[in-house]
Computed example of a mutant assay.
Amino acid sequence: MAYTYRFAALLVLLSATVSFSSAQISVSLPFTGNISIGFSNSLLVKKDTSLNIVWYGKFTPNQRAIIVDFIRSLNSPADAKGPTVASWWKTTEKYNGGASTIVVGKQLLLEDYPFGKSLKNPHLKALSGKLNGGGVRSITAVLTAKDVTVEGLCTKRCGTHVSKSSSVGGRAYVWVGNSEDQCPEYCARPFHQPLSGPHSPPLIAPNGDVGVDGMIIHLATLLANTATNTFKSGNVNGDQEPASYCVDRFGSGAYPGYAGHVLVDKTTGASYNALGLAGRKYLLPALWDSQAGECRTLV
């Protein structure tokens, strides 16, 4: 079964009467969608889950470090004081009755574009099997570089997740593409202004890379929905998942076209709401807090 970040009607961006209460949200911005992982009758993310990474295309060492440090930060508190990636991830513990731990697994660099620079869904599936991760506690993230086009990127999705509970080993994968040169107005928001609708000036990316910082937002959403919504048990309002339900909300006071009150680095002017390992800063989406009954932001 495949679940994708899909465009919601852009009409909501132009609406003058929008309901944005925490308990009953009627706003659906671009790239919301359902992402659910199922493996037999067990929960996927209950203990240590290895996240394998296939880097397809050319990523600089710094770009890879930004993403790997984010994954490492999910379960490791940052040294500095303030809201952290780990405290953001801790919200997932309120679903499915326990802690969720994701660790960095195997990594594979494919800088020679073995399937070319224009990929379709079968290519993503083939790439997901390159590391032979498999197993009920293993996921593969296929990450494509900014010069790689992928079927549906920009027109329908920024990332996707596919799970095969009936396949050998129950292999599952997520895909996220770097949209910096293709459609940053859709997939790298709020670091780029959208094409239409109400919007405030774009924020400065916390790691100085609009494409990769945008990828972090979508990867975070995919992983949070994976941990909280196995078998759609964590659906909010019937058909939305905890991270997708709170799309485009990053700080308190957020509304369509405005990311909310976030922290700003005094030196670089970059916006962030979470501290990670190695001194990293990230901007992460709000998560639906099932106990508080609201979209919970870090700041």
Rank of each mutant, 00 (worst) to 15 (best):
A278P: 05
G159K: 05
A243W: 03
C246P: 02
V174E: 01
D209R: 06
A224K: 01
D239K: 10
I216E: 03
G260W: 04
N225R: 01
G170R: 06
T228E: 05
S252G: 13
D209P: 00
I204F: 06
L277D: 09
R280W: 09
V210A: 09
G269Q: 07
V212H: 00
P194W: 02
A274C: 04
G276V: 15
T228I: 03
T267C: 08
P198D: 10
Y173Q: 04
T226H: 02
S166T: 12
D265F: 14
Y186N: 07
L219D: 03
P202T: 10
S200L: 10
I217M: 09
I217Q: 09
H161Y: 10
R157D: 07
F231W: 11
S252W: 10
A227M: 02
T268G: 04
G276T: 12
N178H: 00
V212K: 01
T221I: 10
I216Y: 03
V262E: 13
P256G: 08
V212R: 00
I216M: 09
H161T: 14
V162E: 10
A274E: 02
S233K: 13
V264P: 00
L153W: 11
R157N: 10
G257K: 02
S166Y: 08
D265H: 11
G238I: 11
V212Y: 01
G197Q: 06
G251N: 13
K266I: 15
R249F: 12
V247Y: 12
C187F: 03
T228D: 01
A259R: 07
N178K: 01
S166N: 11
H218M: 12
H218D: 15
P201F: 07
S163N: 13
P184C: 07
A188N: 11
A227L: 05
V264N: 01
A172E: 10
G169Y: 01
L195G: 08
C183A: 09
C187P: 00
L222A: 15
S167K: 07
V210R: 14
L222E: 09
A254M: 09
S165V: 09
G170A: 07
P256V: 11
N229C: 10
G260F: 09
L195Q: 09
C154I: 09
L222R: 05
A278G: 11
G177A: 08
M215I: 07
E185F: 08
R189W: 04
G159A: 12
G152S: 12
Y245A: 15
A259P: 15
V236K: 01
G269L: 14
N235G: 06
A227D: 03
S165C: 04
C246Y: 03
E180Q: 11
G208E: 11
T160A: 14
Y173M: 07
F191K: 03
G208I: 13
K266H: 14
T230H: 11
C154Q: 03
T267V: 15
P256A: 06
G197T: 08
S271P: 06
L203P: 01
S165F: 05
N229M: 08
P242L: 10
T155G: 10
S252L: 15
D239S: 12
Q182P: 00
A227K: 00
T268K: 01
N178R: 00
C154T: 07
R189K: 04
T268E: 15
C246H: 04
G169P: 00
E180D: 12
S167C: 13
C187Y: 02
N178W: 02
E241P: 01
H199C: 03
V264Y: 07
T221N: 11
C158P: 00
Q193D: 08
S179I: 08
H218E: 13
T268H: 05
P190G: 04
G197W: 06
